[in-house]
Design a protein around this nucleic acid. Structure first.
Lengths: 200, 200
DNA sequence: GCACAACCTGACCGCGCGGTCCGCTTCGGT
DNA sequence: ACCGAAGCGGACCGCGCGGTCAGGTTGTGC
C-alpha cells in the first residue's frame, strides 16, 4: 500500500513540475522542481524513474484533459461549434506553457501512456471532424489528424512575440479555423498524413 | 585586415553550425560544431563571442534570406500569389530545421542584428499584405505582422509527427492561407498585435 | 625570405546537470 | 506503544557543457 505522505508528495511534485515547465521551458533542472515542491531531490526519482518520465506523465495528463473535453463535445448539438471549442481548448492548453507541449511531444513519444493518449485524441478528433463535416461546417478534405496537428499552430504563432499578450492565440486560431471552412477551400497540394505516421 | 584562412574558417563554422542545428536541434555542443567544421574548439570562440551570438548570426541570415525574397516578390504583378509565395518560402525555411527558428527567435531577441532583420521582415510583410489586400486576395483584417507570426504555424504543425514527411507542411500552409482569404472571413475575436510587441 | 601579428589548437577550468545511495525519519497496522 | 517497512533527504558521482588561455603555427606586407 502507498503511504499518505507519498501520494501528497507526488501531487506536489507534479504541480511544481507543471508550473516550472510552464514558466521556464522544459530545461528546468530536477533540483529546481524538487525545491519548488518543497521536497528533496531524491524524492523526485522515487516517484519518477527519470526526468523524461516525469515529463511524459505531465504531458499525458494534458492530453487526457483534451480527450475528455473532446468526448463531451462529441455529443454537442452543434458540431461546428463543438469542433471550434475543441480546438480552442486544445490551443489554450498549449498556450498555457510557453513551449512545453511540442517539445514534450517530441521527447516522450516512446512512452506507452503518451502513445495511448495520443491514439485516443486522434479518435475523438476524428469523430468531431466527421460530425462537423456532415453538418457542412468544415471542408471535405480535412481530417481529424489535421485538426490535431493544427492545434499547435495557433499557439506557436504567438511565440515570436516578446511581451505576454494573453489570448492573442485566439486571433490566430480564428484564422486557422476560417481556413477549415468550406467557403474558402481550395484543393490541397498534399494528401493528409496517415494515422500510422502520428501514432508512430 | 583579416586573414584568408580566418574567413574560410568562419564560413566553415557557419555551415557546420547550420547543418548541426538543423539535424539535432539547438542544444548541440560547441565541441560538436567545431569538430564538424574540422577546426578546434577555440576557433569557434575567436569568431563568435558566445554560443548565443553564433546562433543569432545564423538566425539573422535566415531572416535576411526571407526579407530578400519578400522584396523581390513585392514587385510581382499578382499580389495574392506573391503573398502565398512569400509565406511558402518563409515556412520552408523553418521546416528545413526541425525546431531551430522559434527557439532561436526566443534566445536571440536582444541581439542587434536580429532586431533589425526582424524589423525589415515586418516592413516587407506589410507591403505584401497591403498589396494583396488591395487586390482582394486576402481579408481586410489581416496585417503584415499576422502573416509573419503565421509563418511558424504550418511548419510547427508537422512537428508532432514521428516520421519525416517532407512537404507535408505545404498542406497546412495551404489551409492557413485559405483562412486568410476573404471568402471565409469571420470577425476576429482579438485585435492585431502592435509592431512594438514584435520588435520588442 | 623575414618578422610579426593574426590565428589556431586542445588541454584545462568551474559549473550544474541527471541520477545514485545510504542513513535517518515517519507512517500505519497491531 | 512499538516496530518494520516505506518514504525521505541531500551529499555524492561522473559527465559534458560553455568558455579560457598559453604556446605553437601560418598567412602576409615589406
Amino acid at each position: 500500500m502507498t503511504r499518505a505522505d507519498a501520494v501528497r508528495n507526488r501531487r506536489l511534485l507534479m504541480d511544481a513540475a507543471t508550473a516550472e515547465f510552464a514558466e521556464n521551458g522544459m530545461d528546468v533542472s530536477i533540483t529546481r522542481i524538487a525545491s519548488r515542491a518543497g521536497v528533496g531531490k531524491g524524492t523526485v526519482f522515487r516517484h519518477f524513474d527519470t526526468k523524461e518520465q516525469l515529463l511524459a506523465e505531465i504531458f499525458s495528463d494534458r492530453l487526457e484533459e483534451l480527450v475528455a473535453a473532446g468526448e463531451r463535445l462529441a455529443e454537442s448539438a452543434d458540431p461546428g461549434a463543438a469542433l471550434l471549442e475543441f480546438m480552442t481548448i486544445g490551443t489554450e492548453i498549449q498556450a498555457r506553457d510557453r513551449s512545453f507541449c511540442q517539445a514534450a511531444a517530441a521527447l516522450s513519444r516512446c512512452e506507452a501512456t503518451v502513445r495511448t493518449s495520443r491514439e485516443r485524441l486522434a479518435d475523438v478528433a476524428d469523430v468531431l471532424v466527421e460530425r462537423a463535416r456532415a453538418a457542412g461546417a468544415v471542408r471535405d478534405d480535412v481530417t481529424g489528424l489535421d485538426v490535431v496537428l493544427l492545434l499547435s499552430a495557433a499557439s506557436q504563432a504567438v511565440l515570436s512575440l516578446s511581451g505576454e499578450t494573453p489570448g492573442l492565440w485566439r486571433r490566430y486560431l480564428a484564422m486557422v479555423f476560417d481556413g477549415l471552412r468550406p467557403e474558402a477551400a481550395r484543393p490541397l497540394p498534399v494528401p493528409a498524413p496517415t494515422r500510422a505516421e502520428f501514432t508512430g
